[in-house]
């Protein structure tokens, strides 16, 4: 009896920091949503409260005057092209590294994986000139290629570990029936790895949608800005224009797709990220 009372007290005591941290996480995010519906005057008068009238003027301003529409479009293209290109490059390599014996396979795998630990900042300077030579500087497709290659090691790592769980007997019997290795890869392995492919793709898509620094370096003109750059631009403007409402609206536009993906694929995302971290 004494033990259970003590237990109850300690459990309530444990809950307090958990609840406080939940508030610390949720409050700024909720507040950002609320702020996006407030006029600038209201943000000044009452920065942390509810708006008197909910209006969507901020979204309209962001969408038209700050051409967020173009940035959303650019971000969608970069995300989609980047995610698809990553898969096209990663799936065959992951399969070959996981299932085919050849000299240097271990070395190649180690090379890809260790690239996850290397600070790429050093490479960005030559990459800047390289993209310039290929006419891919200030070009969203150039950025999509850079993104795809940057997520290649992570994708190969997750896909190989996923493919290793597929039983070999399926490939063996398909090969006995006369299927070529290309057929096996496309018709057997790819569908069977679909769960891993989806996990990797969601992770990569979120990464590309959110990415800021490479976009800052490799894009220059405003019509090519991705959402992250457009928001950064609005933010630095807001220092002078005080257009905080518009800034919040653009933050909301950036975060809503991530929230939707997270609410659908919460477990996959959590698993994908922890797996990616464990290889370290």
């Amino acid at each position: 009896m004494k033990r259970s009372v003590g237990n109850m007290i300690s459990r309530t005591g444990i809950r307090i920091p958990l609840i406080l941290w939940s508030i610390a996480v949720l409050y700024p995010i909720i507040w950002m949503f609320i702020g996006s519906f407030k006029s600038n005057a209201e943000i000044y008068a009452n920065p942390w409260g509810f708006p008197e009238t909910w209006n969507i003027q901020n979204f309209a301003t962001a969408w038209t005057e700050y051409s967020i529409d173009t940035s959303v479009f650019n971000s969608l293209i970069v995300t989609a092209v980047g995610a698809i290109l990553t898969l096209v490059l990663a799936i065959p390599t992951a399969y070959a590294l996981e299932r085919i014996r050849f000299k240097g396979s271990h070395f190649l795998f180690t090379l890809y994986i260790s690239a996850m630990m290397i600070p790429m900042v050093l490479g960005w300077i030559p990459l800047f000139f390289l993209l310039g030579q290929f006419n891919l500087l200030d070009n969203i497709f150039g950025l999509a290629i850079v993104y795809a290659i940057s997520q290649l090691p992570f994708s190969i790592f997750v896909l190989t570990s996923f493919m290793s769980t597929i039983p070999k007997s399926l490939e063996e019997s398909a090969a006995m029936d006369g299927m070529s290795p290309y057929g096996v890869l496309w018709k057997i392995i790819t569908p069977l790895s679909m769960s891993g492919i989806i996990t990797v793709t969601i992770m990569n898509a979120i990464q590309f949608w959110n990415e800021y620094f490479m976009a800052l370096i490799f894009l220059q003109s405003e019509e090519n800005y991705t959402l992250a750059l457009a928001i950064d631009f609005i933010s630095s403007e807001a220092q002078y224009t005080n257009a905080w409402g518009t800034l919040f609206a653009s933050l909301v536009i950036a975060i809503v797709p991530v929230i939707i993906l997270y609410s659908i694929f919460q477990q996959r995302i959590a698993k994908g990220m922890t797996e990616g971290a464990i290889k370290g």
Partner: peptide, 12 residues
């Protein structure tokens, strides 16, 4: 809830 900030953009 606690995991969510991990997938937010650094800009946001």
């Amino acid at each position: 809830i606690f995991f969510f900030p991990n997938i937010m953009s650094v800009v946001v």
